[in-house]
């Protein structure tokens, strides 16, 4: 690791020094291509974020890809219903590594206002690993931009070696998650137990 002071001193002299990790993460954190994948109301705010006023392209993410094969980021924008959940997981599985998930809005986080619904999945984290949650119903486009910046910081901070390295550099970890099936009453299984556990109950004293 190069000393920060020395690096700044060298920069004044016109010498630019960086590490492979920084360069690599700088590159990939500034061109996160989202999947153009809208589920419900939040998708409209996602679209608004990509339009002239909020201009997501300032952050290198204006290239919404219709195909999961070309996308890095899945923005789960809206309510995930039980009927849609298998498709969402399948889309995630089809995305190449490295891939990230933003759960946008209350519905994607927990079911939100529709939580009591019989056909509503109570949060996409039951099936997918979520990197960033954005609260709001719907979150404003600025909130999406903030989430994107947070994700970029997360990517920039990932070490390329060691046990903390990202999944795409670690052959032992799979980036595919089991797709739930339609059962007679509910999805089977209703959640991915390896990913998500219900909150522990605390009895008020």
């Amino acid at each position: 690791m190069i000393d920060e002071g020395l690096k700044n001193e060298l920069a004044k002299q016109g010498v630019f020094v960086t590490s492979v990790q920084e360069l690599y993460n700088w590159g990939r954190s500034n061109s996160v291509w989202p999947l153009s994948f809208g589920l419900a109301c939040c998708a409209i705010e996602m679209m608004a974020a990509s339009m002239a006023r909020f201009d997501i392209s300032r952050f290198g993410s204006e290239v919404f890809r219709p195909s999961p094969r070309q996308a890095d980021l899945m923005i789960v924008a809206g309510t995930v219903t039980k009927k849609m959940a298998p498709q969402v997981v399948r889309l995630y599985n089809q995305m190449p590594e490295p891939k990230y998930v933003i759960a946008m809005g209350a519905c994607a986080i927990s079911g939100g206002p529709f939580k009591q619904g019989y056909n509503v999945l109570k949060g996409i984290d039951r099936f997918l690993p979520v990197d960033i949650h954005i609260p709001g119903c719907p979150p404003r486009p600025e909130a999406l931009l903030h989430a994107l910046i947070t994700l970029q910081e997360k990517i920039a901070g990932q070490p390329l070696t060691g046990p903390e390295r990202p999944r795409h550099l670690n052959a032992a970890v799979s980036g595919e998650y089991p797709v739930p099936e339609f059962g007679p009453h509910d999805l089977q299984p209703p959640r991915n137990d390896g990913l998500w556990k219900p909150l522990p109950l605390v009895r008020p004293t």
Binding site: P113, Q116, G117, Y118, V120
Partner: peptide
């Protein structure tokens, strides 16, 4: 049905006024 969020069922279990925010969505 891929966005069937059970608006009607939820509104039948909520008060009249509480269904108003659901009509937004």
């Amino acid at each position: 049905g891929y966005l069937h969020r059970n608006h009607e069922k939820i509104a039948e279990g909520a008060s009249y006024l509480a269904a108003m925010p659901y009509t937004d969505r």
